[in-house]
Amino acid sequence: MLSFIIRRLLIILPMVLIVVTLTWGLIRIAPGNFYSGEKKLPAAIEATIRKKYGLDKPWYEQYGMMISNIVRGDFGDSLKYQGQTVNEIIKRHLPYSATIGILGYLLALAVGLTAGTVAALKQNSSFDYSSMSFAMLGLSIPNFVLGPILVLIFAFWFYILPPARWGGPTALILPVVTLAAVYAAYIARLTRAGMLEVMRSDYIRTARAKGLDEKTVLLRHAIRGGLIPVISFTGPALAGLLAGTVIVERVFAIPGLGNIFIQAVLNRDEPLILGIVAFLSILIMVFNLIVDISYGFLDPRIRYE
């Protein structure tokens, strides 16, 4: 187990460097640069900028400098936001994304697990059909449609919730619900499928044969196996949620990482893009590792050698 974890942790750094290299290449291929604007810059000023940011050096030197900085954990200064470091920007905006991300996921778990489990236990009942129809609806309505609909209802028909911006618990409700909808739908469907499969398996039959009551069968044996698909989904989903969800953050004007990331790309703010990409890839790999470890606890058949 320990060697498995160490092996996985060791691979993170080279993986991050590969991701960063690819991203760096893509940024360099993309036309345009961070300093270009509607007005032409005088040639001398452009030369000063290029010199200041080392853009006048050959590409391999620039690449080497970038990689050595990243290995030391220093992503440098944002090119767009003067006097702010990338690390500081990520640190400052992560909590916003994490707050709505975690709350959204908890809500999705609560709704999805309940709906999925009940639907599986009462397969082909009207509850099953209606909850799965809602789940299908949740999956098919994109959040840039759901968000504005919720705003219309709760901010303009009833005037009870603010339509956007950060501030106060009431402001969290709409973005969290919007975010949760699609995940709840996924989780409900995964749970239902997982539970249906487990409930038909031999060990459940054995448990029942031992004379355990249905509640114990469900809570002690079935849930653990039935949740495996949900857990594998949770790793990358949670990493993505923590790192910011672009659309929800933009619709609700939330100062999260997703919003910053999009802006960084549009601004060609290379250090900020690389910083967020590296952070996001580490996050995804760590969460995947946690997920893999948790399998062992949920399903005794899974072993790590």
Binding site: P148, V151, P162, P163, A164, R165, R250, F252, A253
Partner: peptide
Amino acid sequence: FYPIEENSTMMNLYKAGE
């Protein structure tokens, strides 16, 4: 000053009197 870029979000905030 609120930094916002989505036009419809701005319209919403305006309509809601924010």
